[in-house]
């Protein structure tokens, strides 16, 4: 039942698109029907170019995400809990935060060139902010009574941090991570528009130059599906690692 509910809107959408595209009401070169997009996709998969591009993009995503998430989470927990660190870093971060992450790409290219470090840095930079702000808020809202309770039970700062403050902040961190994952897919595309020789974003821009709308759409579909899958896997995986989160979410 759930599967039908999920699949039905997609099937209806594709069917309508196919019909309209074939009816001649629209320019089929600009709006190729799904069937053509699927055959373009199969061709790209068979030739191996799609796998090569997926691999390149996923690798950038993973490295950039890991970097942005690690730094964002660590700094967020620190600025949320330690006043000195907050005083030191908050003004700086607050100035950088309103920047659209895409706008730093020209600067990043000047610094890092057009290679992998530039792409990974751009992704990490974009991911950092939502993860940081959520970790910061999560660490700030730890109920005082919980900390008092912990203080009577352990003198260890590390145990208090890892077993009380971190889990108390985790529902916020998870929300930040999901925003970060979504942003990383935006950034991998934008980063691959400049000076890439492989990747899903590169695929889309070369298909654009070759006027292969079917290939463009195939690559777009892969990018969209990857993003949705990454978000889904994260949502399922995090509850597997921290089973108690499912109670936190229903409350």
């Amino acid at each position: 039942m759930k599967l039908i509910r999920l699949a039905l809107p997609i099937i209806l959408f594709l069917a309508a698109w196919e019909l309209i595209s074939r009816s001649g009401w629209v320019n089929a070169a600009l709006f190729p029907p799904p069937s053509k997009v699927v055959s373009a996709l199969t061709e790209m998969l068979r030739s191996g170019e799609m796998f090569r591009d997926m691999q390149a993009s996923y690798l950038r995503l993973i490295v950039g995400l890991t970097g942005g998430v690690s730094v964002g989470m660590l700094l967020g927990l620190l600025t949320g809990r330690i006043k000195l660190v907050a005083d030191l870093l908050m003004p700086l971060i607050q100035i950088l935060r309103p920047l659209p992450p895409v706008a730093i790409i020209p600067l990043v290219i000047v610094w890092f060139g057009i290679g992998e470090p530039a792409k990974v840095f751009s992704i990490g930079f974009a991911v950092f902010f939502p993860v940081w702000i959520n970790s910061h808020l999560g660490a700030q809202q730890v109920p005082q009574r919980l900390l008092w309770s912990a203080a009577t039970l352990t003198k260890s700062k590390w145990r208090t941090f890892s077993q009380v403050i971190f889990p108390a902040a985790l529902p916020f961190i998870v929300a930040g991570l999901r925003v970060g994952i979504a942003l990383s897919f935006v950034m991998v595309f934008v980063a691959e528009l400049t000076g890439a020789s492989e990747g899903i974003g590169y695929q889309i821009s070369t298909a654009h130059l070759a006027y292969r709308i079917d290939k463009m759409m195939a690559a777009l579909a892969v990018l969209g599906a990857s993003g949705a899958l990454a978000d889904y896997l994260f949502a399922v995986g995090i509850v597997k690692v921290y089973p108690w989160l499912k109670f936190a979410q229903t409350k």
Partner: peptide, 23 residues
């Protein structure tokens, strides 16, 4: 000393046994 509050007394991310063992 030990302390018991009305709310937020136990850690929701720990099982019953983990809560008791924390101290």
């Amino acid at each position: 000393v030990g302390v018991v509050f009305q709310d937020y007394s136990v850690f929701p991310w720990m099982t019953v046994a983990q809560n008791i063992a924390f101290g």
